[in-house]
Amino acid sequence: MIPDAFKKRYSELADDSGFFACLETILPKSFRTNTIKSSSLEIRERFAGYGIAIKQMPWYGDAFVSQTPEIGATLEHFLGKIYIQELVSMIPALVVKKELENASLVLDACAAPGSKTTQIAAMMKNRGRLIANDLSYSRIKALQFNLQKAGALNTIITNQDLRFFPNQQYDVVILDAPCSSEGIMRKNDKLFRTWNEKKIYGHSRLQKQLIVKAFDLLREGGVMTYSTCTFAPEENEEVVGHLLSERNAKIEKIQLPGFKLSKGTTEWRKNQYPPEVENCVRIWPQHNDTGGFFVAMVVK
């Protein structure tokens, strides 16, 4: 049951009557080919052999959706040839794929449990160096398990607070910031019961510190993605706006042919954000039958 306060808060921003209805439906199962160990051609053939129907995404050939809930009971899952991952969570690495292919030093700043990290390691073809950091020691175990299972050789795990991270110049930084997680309510409906507007403000304060630090870790010409799985503009456009006011950053346009993206909002409750935040993308669940997400691509 969606809280009334949540409905009231987002009824204007979501500008589409399908939003709340979609949040109460079950999210389709999705997964990604782990190209360290397999290819999407092999995965298609194997699943066809099992008689499991899967649909390849036109916007990302390594992404698949299935109505079968038993993806985890396949040999390919056991072998780490596929990784069960929400479609929208694949987008931050995907938008910087070209940069990752040529990068020698990459930071995944809030890496656990490793969905994006394993994807990044695969896009780097297991070459160069990928620093997978997470502040939460309890989540490091899952990160380690997933990286080992995926066969990531180029990945170094660290457990530090990003705000005090040693200075190095990274080619690419992926900052998938801790957030109020409103966008994963289709996967975890408990979040409806614990949803509280106050949490948003606490996250926003931390995210503003993290985005500036992450930007400072980029080399000149380097690229960063900032993402959250939440709808709150305070955690999204406001955070990107904060970076623009503090640093000389450029927000790049994001395009993903075959996947509907909405532009960032420049206005929220009496607050105005810089026009550049329109280049950020909001992903509304009802548009692509996914979770909710926000991504900004930042260039130094």
């Binding site: 380690q144 990286l147 990531a152 170094i156 660290t158 040693p166």
Partner: peptide
């Protein structure tokens, strides 16, 4: 572990594939 050629940082939890 089998990992990248250089690590050049302290406090590493794991340096590649066990």
């Amino acid at each position: 572990y089998l990992g990248p050629k250089t690590i050049d940082r302290p406090q590493v939890i794991s340096p590649g594939l066990l």
